[in-house]
Design a protein around this nucleic acid. Structure first.
Lengths: 290, 290
DNA sequence: GCATATATCTGACTTTAGTCAGATATCACG
DNA sequence: CGTGATATCTGACTAAAGTCAGATATATGC
């Protein structure tokens, strides 16, 4: 009764029956599940027919028929792709948007109901993030984005909050050498965010101080995504960006309180070097030649 | 991106696609999913055909045909119910057991693989327990059982471990007035365990010290199941058992370090009374007249 | 014993999902 | 322009799931 495999299987059973209920709730609008899934994919911004087909794993014949039935209902319209007339682009009509909103309302209400009665709301959400990240491991994409974007600012906020928790003396961004956001944008640097299905799970910044040197800053991985190798993937992506920018030597500073980070650096070819700045927070300094 | 509803929906998406993969893995044995589900339900101990039908939500015609196909394959045999010849009882044949084991092996392997690569194994299992408990809220059954049974002993072990963590001075069962297990069995007392799909989620003991007095002991709820009202359900069940035993006054002792428990007692009609024993651990004493 | 309810079975049917072999239009490239 | 690749569509098909109206046998209560 304690054995891990039984616990996973208990979870599977619980979730399988919940998913069944979730599916059937989508049948309440007089449309088979397949058509509803296509409508929702389009509503969520997927326009390219081939893309939808891949995403939903449908045969091209079946896809074609489902599109036709939605078109007959007046919910979508398709046009040829501007650059490639073989490809088709689907868009919701006004009626389609209305119908899509009805499906969204069902989903939102279910999600809300699920959370509603629980006094353990936060723990439950954290558990869901953890499991979704573990399940969707391969679906996590690393996107280079502006450090002032919402996703990036969210990551940085979480990162600072974590430093404040983990440093004995706390953490105040203003006392640290905070790189200006525009230094972490090409051509001087880069900022990379790991996104999984809309949720930011981690980030890393690269800021070029001279033509050859650059610094890695702000490496952070969400608690829900730790242990999945995301930190390493982010560092690899940052190194790749550095190479593209012609950087030959990378540096970073960190604190021994962040043990996982230190381990990661040591395991991936970084070597410890003497202090190279007077920031009050770091006490460990690393370098890597590309 | 932080909003709870989106996080729940992200979880739903992740889990829906995982469940899809889980389903298709069951098709690898040349049998449609429906038949495989029936075979597995029987293998897991469901024998009554009507019960299986309810559990899987199948139409009686469909159910009949699925049973027939499994019978034709030689995997099950059906007999009439001993007390009611209209009802049918299904049982696996030797070949059926073999086939069922093959399905079990698939499930076990998947569960194992899922856990395999994760460095966050324990956190993941805890998250799965939490979510399965939250989803299966209504599936939690309170069973009266022997306090020496495996499930009961598991609960007690967890309970003691938790006391040891939460009491500043630690906890040693031997120093406490440990009621003899046989005092928590009818007709002198009772022991109730909350079981959800094979996992014990909580317990409570009732031990009669005289004809009219009895004590509530060992109330525990698994961390994964807190916030779902299980403590209250357990206490209600214990009170019901006490009434059945003719008890008119219930007592219990607890410690102020266990704040949730104290709150529960106060909210459910218990009144604080002076110390009534010399156990070193408790510092709060309650009574309730039935 | 008889009327009614219940559990299962049978046959005839529909819907949904999925497969596959071409047909058609368009693109990319020499 | 012609050739081969690509994206979508069409028609013909199958398998699985699900529905429904009786048929059959057994149980229950008067």
């Amino acid at each position: 009764m304690l054995d891990p495999v039984s616990r996973v299987r208990r979870f599977n059973r619980a979730v399988t029956s919940a998913v069944g209920a979730l599916d059937t709730s989508f049948l309440g609008r007089g449309r088979p599940l397949g058509a509803a899934r296509v409508l929702n994919a389009i509503g969520h911004g997927r326009a390219d027919v081939g893309d939808i087909r891949d995403y939903l794993g449908l045969d091209s014949g079946l896809m074609s028929r489902l599109l036709r039935s939605l078109e007959d209902e007046g919910l979508i319209e398709t046009t040829a792709h501007a650059d490639d007339a073989r490809r088709r682009i689907a868009r919701l009509t006004a009626a389609g948007k209305c119908e899509f909103n009805a499906y969204e309302a069902i989903s939102n209400r279910q999600a809300k109901d699920f959370l509603g009665h629980h006094s353990q709301r936060d723990a439950l959400l954290a558990a869901m993030d953890l499991i979704a990240s573990a399940l969707g491991r391969d679906g996590t994409a690393l996107d280079e984005m502006d450090p002032r974007s919402d996703a990036a600012r969210y990551c940085l906020g979480e990162y600072y909050a974590e430093l404040a928790r983990r440093f004995k003396q706390g953490f105040d961004v203003k006392l640290s050498r905070d790189p200006d956001a525009k230094d972490m944008v090409r051509p001087r640097g880069s900022f990379i965010v790991a996104m999984s299905d809309g949720l930011p799970l981690g980030c890393v910044g690269l800021t070029g101080t001279s033509d050859e040197f650059a610094e890695i800053k702000r490496l952070w991985v969400a608690p829900a995504a730790r242990g999945l190798g995301l930190g390493r993937r982010l560092m690899d992506a940052a190194e790749k960006a550095a190479r593209e920018l012609g950087i030959t030597v990378l540096r970073l500073d960190t604190n021994s309180a962040l043990a996982e980070a230190g381990q990661l650096y040591r395991r991936t070819g970084w070597t410890e070097i003497p202090r190279f700045n007077d920031d009050p927070y770091p006490n460990l300094f690393f370098e890597k030649r590309l």
